[in-house]
Computed example of a mutant assay.
Amino acid sequence: MIHLSVEIDSSLVEWLKLTNNPQVDFPNRFLSFQQENNLQLPNASLVDFPISIDMNDIKSMMMQIDKLKTHLTESVVKASSFFPDTSEEYYHHLKVILLPFGKINYGPTEGVQIFSLFPHTDWRETILFLTHVYYHEITHLNYTKRCKEVSANHKSKDSYLYYLQVLIQNEGIANYIVLEELEKMIPLLGNKYIFRYFTYARNIRSEELITKCMDVFNQLFMMEQETFNKYYKKIARLIKSEELPAINLIGIYLATVIAENYGIDVLRNVHQKPATEFFSLYMETDDPLRNHLKDVSLI
């Protein structure tokens, strides 16, 4: 069984209330914060402060923090319900560092997640996205030897394509956990609402875009090694772009079909299983879109 505990560090957001010039003061504060928490982060700017910060911005973020902490246990339980069965007991702790006006969401080291917080984002979206992050945090515990290898080094064509299969499986299950709530929320937020986290939310059921993502992904398996080497950086950017969110849309679609055909237990039990099994399960269904992935490697 996998046990996850989570703490939320909101001190950087709370610091905003104490400064009148965050653009000037934040670099030193953030450097001190990194030293206090033994973190080594990129030197590039990780935040994008507005020219002036309105008190309503701070109130909005503090309200989100309150909701995140109030619903923390509920969110962890929800994510944990999709953790796979394991013969061993695993205990993992995650510290979520909230970064005001941040430009990134990523884990710089195991057990730490830098999570950007934005004013006026609907708190329900923030909670759902963090719930999906909680699942991501334990995925390394499920990895086979090959999954670990390609996650660490994926410069060759074969390793990169397998790495994408790992990411698609992870994103598929993580998004599926919150999918029902997310889809209920979309019409309630209205057409003018801008999703800051689930940027692909309005395309989750777009068969046109899903098939386009599948076709592009499928074509990568037919690509010659020399061509792949030449366009590797462009491929890496394209496959994760907002215009073609292939990893998310393919993952969500396959996870949904697998759950519908085999049940939730089959979907969630990925511990020590190759990422290709996720695709094999899908390809064994009679789903009408499966031909778009006909060249994807299943070994």
Rank of each mutant, 00 (worst) to 15 (best):
N28Y: 14
I114W: 00
L41H: 11
R290L: 07
S32R: 09
H132I: 00
W123Q: 04
F115W: 08
Y143E: 04
E207F: 04
Q219K: 13
G251V: 04
I250P: 03
I235M: 09
A255M: 08
S10R: 06
N28G: 01
N261Q: 07
N38A: 14
N37V: 09
F49W: 13
D85F: 13
K192N: 15
I168A: 00
I51V: 13
Y200R: 11
P100V: 00
K234F: 13
V133T: 02
E74C: 10
K145D: 15
I210D: 01
F49P: 02
R290Q: 07
E181H: 12
Y163K: 07
I2T: 09
L167I: 11
T139W: 02
M283E: 08
K155Y: 13
A174W: 01
L128I: 08
A79R: 02
D122I: 03
S45N: 14
I114Y: 00
L249P: 09
C147W: 12
N248T: 04
H132A: 09
H71V: 07
I53M: 02
Y197A: 02
Y262K: 00
Y134F: 15
H120A: 03
V6M: 02
R290E: 00
I194E: 11
S52F: 09
S60P: 10
D265I: 05
H93K: 15
E180V: 06
D122L: 06
D122R: 05
N38F: 10
I250T: 02
K148M: 11
K192Y: 07
Y106G: 06
S32A: 13
E88Y: 06
P274D: 15
A255V: 08
V96C: 05
S45T: 14
E226Q: 12
N175F: 01
T227Q: 12
Y162I: 03
I168L: 05
P27V: 01
I168M: 04
F30L: 01
E149D: 15
F198I: 08
N248F: 11
I51P: 06
L141N: 02
E36T: 15
L167M: 13
A259C: 10
F118M: 06
D215S: 14
P100E: 00
A275K: 10
Y282N: 10
R29I: 06
K148G: 08
P119G: 06
K148Y: 10
E36F: 11
L209Q: 12
Q34K: 15
S156C: 07
D295S: 12
I138A: 03
Y232Q: 14
L289Q: 04
I168R: 00
F49D: 03
H3K: 07
Q23R: 14
E7M: 05
T139L: 08
H132C: 05
N175T: 08
T19F: 04
H92T: 08
Q23D: 03
I299C: 04
H140D: 14
D295G: 04
K59Y: 10
